[in-house]
Design a protein around this nucleic acid. Structure first.
Lengths: 136, 136
DNA sequence: CATTATTGCTATGATTGATAGCATACATCG
DNA sequence: CGATGTATGCTATCAATCATAGCAATAATG
């Protein structure tokens, strides 16, 4: 093949991320969630009270784009909006959301394990710290 | 912060890829190219004669989506379509395309170097093989 | 109190990606 | 040769993601 792009880390990063995302999307589709949906549920599993803006800042999703995302989750009965003051809303997991979260955890941990298995053992432990250095 | 997602390689991969892509986009914007444009130019720098479909297969871009991409490159005077038989077209770099390619190389090698510099030395050499294992 | 910032939202583009269909042309095999 | 199957390049279209601007209400600050 002799792909002149194969040596570029940036290119490999893009391809790897695409492959990973499409596989994870497929697995999450079985429980009717998108990747961003699952990220929000995982984030809400922490004990902290968070508003829509908080979540957006954490996940790098703009306020405007949080709206349809949270609407979808609310329509699916996974979260609820609870007034925090007269302007802000706390986003909390509903009971259904906590159930769904368990399924999300099951899928994501299996997925992460599979991912890591594909990496030769001598490189495996270096991936996470290397990636985190690229956006910290 | 205690981000419950920070430990997930899949999440880190997504974030790292996003950060990388937006920075590379910004750098390539200075020479009026998008990432896919630059990938095509780099791919065409190989000696092989390639059709639109060939390029699409290499870069995982569908035939339908190659059309506007190549139109853009052709309109910018970077490539030419040369009839190969009565059905297929060879996509070749024009002179302007070869000039642009030099700029692409300058930008991408600087970019890749910067990327690698951000990674702690002990992890650096493991990134590329680990990523390539995730989509090969 | 006056000003400024934040929140949640609407509306709207731009870009990318995926699918379906089509006419033409090539390839294969009896 | 001729029939069938496949590849190519394209149009048209749809869905998803992301970004920007603006707005009304509220909160925070000096």
């Amino acid at each position: 093949m002799h792909d002149p792009l194969a040596e570029l880390p940036g290119y490999a990063l893009r391809r790897a991320a695409n492959a990973m995302m499409s596989e994870l999307s497929a697995r999450l589709a079985e429980i009717d969630l998108r990747i961003s949906d699952a990220s929000v549920l995982l984030l809400l599993s922490g004990e902290r009270t968070m508003t829509s803006s908080d979540i957006g800042r954490m996940l790098d999703i703009q306020r405007a784009n949080m709206v349809p995302l949270l609407n979808r989750l609310e329509a699916a009965g996974l979260i609820a909006r609870e007034p925090l003051d007269r302007k802000s809303m706390a986003i909390v997991l509903s009971e259904g959301g906590r159930d769904k979260l368990k399924q999300v955890r099951r899928i994501t941990t299996a997925f992460e394990n599979d991912l890591m298995q594909r990496i030769p053992a001598e490189h495996r432990d270096h991936l996470l710290p290397a990636l985190n250095a690229l956006w910290g």
